[in-house]
Design a protein around this nucleic acid. Sequence first.
DNA 1: TGTAATGTTTACCAATCGGTCAAATTATCC
DNA 2: GGATAATTTGACCGATTGGTAAACATTACA
Lengths: 214, 214
Amino acid sequence: MAIPRAAKTQRRTRIQEEKEEIILEAALDVFSVNGFRGTTVDQIAEVAGMSKPNLLYYFRTKEAMHRALIDRVLFTWLEPLRAFDANGNPESEIRSYIRRKLEMARDFPRESRLFANEMLQGAPHVEDELRGPLKALVDEKAEVIRAWATAGKIAKCDPYHLIFSIWSTTQHYADFDVQVRAVLGQEHAGEGRFEDAARYLEQLFVDGLRIRHN
Amino acid sequence: MAIPRAAKTQRRTRIQEEKEEIILEAALDVFSVNGFRGTTVDQIAEVAGMSKPNLLYYFRTKEAMHRALIDRVLFTWLEPLRAFDANGNPESEIRSYIRRKLEMARDFPRESRLFANEMLQGAPHVEDELRGPLKALVDEKAEVIRAWATAGKIAKCDPYHLIFSIWSTTQHYADFDVQVRAVLGQEHAGEGRFEDAARYLEQLFVDGLRIRHN
DNA sequence: TGTAATGTTTACCAATCGGTCAAATTATCC
DNA sequence: GGATAATTTGACCGATTGGTAAACATTACA
């Protein structure tokens, strides 16, 4: 009897662990580009190198695969923000936060795009997580930033929009990668663009453009 | 004979103009949320309030609708950058560019999302336009910014990444609208968030966070 | 007002969609 | 090695996909 689906067994088989990993890897490939609606189970099965029924043996539905991916990404995606230290030095904390987010954009662009796709669609699968855990974490860190501003350690600014601007500028290099490459052209589109971006962004957030006021 | 499709006639009928507008409006609704692959012709037909064959009388294929939308958006989307004036004052030029891009994110969020969806999918329909006209325009404006830096009017910085950062921070309020609302919560998610963002971003780009160096 | 061009609809197509089922195959464990 | 559970497959399902054919209705224009 092949009724006991993967989810039902308490202890996961070696094969289960391996195959589920292969499937999620393939699903990430496809979902991150085409979004949930634009992705077909057959596509995932082909990338994963297994038959569709076999794939559906491990994940009952397309939604189950998507949900598993989103859950995983949501957790790791907020790691850098969690590491934001209230007792640290404002400059080094902000610098290292930018650097970490930029490294994630470079090393995990598919995860970034999966998340971006979900946002574009109005977050139908994760709106609760946004309003709950995400908002709570951001509220906490925003309070830290506000305290720094009150203490005169950094300029007074809206801490929420500060966080938004770090998110958007860094993730841009994953989500809009094609555009970045196209605009930079052959000359500058080498892998050095992430170092250039890091240098520019750290300067922007720390010093701004230092426009000379006449 | 109903063979002469809309495209074939030289002069467009009143009905053609009206219906094509209705269709593109509906298509923008659906494409901007679900992306190209995730959108069905039936969805567009329903939103447009007409039958599928009738819709396909004006646009032969799903691709034709998408192409028409992309072309239109690509042009208007670059208006603010074209308006960027080499002879203007650096501070006011950058400030007004930010303001204009933010207004577009507020007033045309669907257009922003349509473009974002296309980028996430690797720009399969517009890669040529990116490498051609877009790159040319950005190259031109980047040269202006570089000249300002050389003249000591603004800090030395990578002009391309400067432009990227303005694009990403402003479009974020359209593309990630759900997330922004969720994080800001009921209290601050009123329509004032665009003014808050404008104030914050203008400060960021002009002065940075003015971190006190110990 | 007549007629030709334009516009709309119903019925339909093959291909693909997400997912099921039972049979066949393979791994596990006593 | 044999029983039992886990895994894999091919055949298949009804629904939906993008798009077509042709009959029908409406408009524009002489």
